[in-house]
């Protein structure tokens, strides 16, 4: 759960294993190893396994906060498919992810190419660019809430200082301006992380490849498109999956900045789950929506892996 959806699950590697000694010792070892891992397995069972099964079970019920649940079969799911807010939230979250992702990826790619060389300056800029990433989305959203305020915010101050006086008063209550603010905030906050991933991918491309290309007369732009991008493919796949997943699951920024305005048009899928489970206390319906989100995201990730996979594999 930690990072949303990592692209690559590492293979458990076998090289560091104990050399097998006496049989009795090895059996003791295996009991000890299991003992070490057991607390985590039990913990994962309680706080991951049970909730996962419970989510499916709840989705088949009318499940109020207090009182007994009633079995309704697929009732919640048919409600969901007919629910206009949910349908809009799905389109909105997907659309948001699709607009947001290319922007943040392109900017991160540019920044990674800028700071990938080894120098004191690069190291300094890397540290700066990653700073917003360690702040929470919650506090960042409140910071931006003030910053874009029409009467008191810093954006207004800067715009006035350079002689631009636009009417910002409706930014967070109108659809397009509100979404633009959230996209800008999200890029600001996450671009450093994606930059870091891509920079690390770029550093693993050997200098010799570039030297050979330079000898063959390829300029920097050509090198970027014909060497860097293709060799960066595995990193890019991962970055895309992260960005799309985070985009589809967006909540904090929209909840704090636009809270659904105008007319529920900026209600994301997670926001709608939140509303149904914890504002209306219709937990069965919230669970059904959660099941749909899990399945939908799994499908999206699978399609991305298929589409972005190296054709030569």
């Amino acid at each position: 759960m930690a990072l949303g959806a990592p692209a690559v699950i590492p293979k458990p590697h076998t090289s560091m294993r104990h050399p097998r000694k006496a049989r009795s010792l090895s059996r003791q070892d295996s009991v000890f190893g299991l003992l070490m891992v057991a607390p985590v397995l039990v913990y994962t069972g309680i706080f991951f396994g049970i909730p996962t099964l419970l989510m499916v079970w709840m989705s088949l019920h009318d499940w109020p906060l207090l009182g007994d649940p009633t079995f309704v079969g697929m009732g919640n799911f048919s409600t969901a498919f007919a629910d206009p807010v949910f349908r809009h939230a799905v389109v909105f979250s997907l659309g948001y992810a699709l607009v947001q992702t290319p922007l943040v990826v392109a900017l991160a790619l540019l920044m990674a190419s800028l700071v990938r060389r080894q120098s004191k300056g690069s190291a300094l800029f890397r540290i700066i660019y990653l700073m917003p990433y360690v702040m929470g989305f919650g506090s960042s959203a409140f910071l931006w809430y003030w910053m874009v305020d029409d009467r008191t915010g810093a954006v207004k101050a800067v715009l006035l200082a350079v002689g631009i006086n636009v009417n910002q008063s409706a930014w967070l209550s109108e659809f397009i301006p509100g979404v633009i603010v959230v996209i800008t905030l999200t890029i600001w906050k996450t671009v450093g992380f994606f930059m870091l991933l891509m920079m690390s991918g770029m550093q693993s491309i050997s200098d010799e490849v570039y030297e050979a290309a330079t000898l063959d007369g390829a300029n920097k732009v050509k090198q970027f498109f014909f060497i860097t991008l293709p060799l960066l493919r595995p990193t890019l796949v991962m970055v895309f999956i992260f960005a799309i997943t985070w985009g589809v699951l967006v909540f904090d920024q929209f909840y704090i900045l636009t809270s659904g305005r105008p007319d529920n048009r900026t209600v994301s899928v997670v926001h709608w789950i939140f509303t149904n489970s914890f504002v209306r206390f219709d937990l069965g319906y919230g669970a059904a929506l959660s099941v749909l989100v899990v399945l939908g995201l799994a499908a999206i990730t699978y399609v991305q892996l298929k589409m972005l996979r190296n054709p030569e594999d």
């Binding site: 985590v40 909730p51 899990v294």
Partner: peptide, 19 residues
């Protein structure tokens, strides 16, 4: 253990609340 990373936390909150 690693596969649990692929489950969106946000989707698990409703059943976690009940747990």
């Amino acid at each position: 253990v690693l596969a649990t990373m692929m489950m969106p936390f946000q989707a698990l909150l409703t059943p976690l609340f009940v747990v």
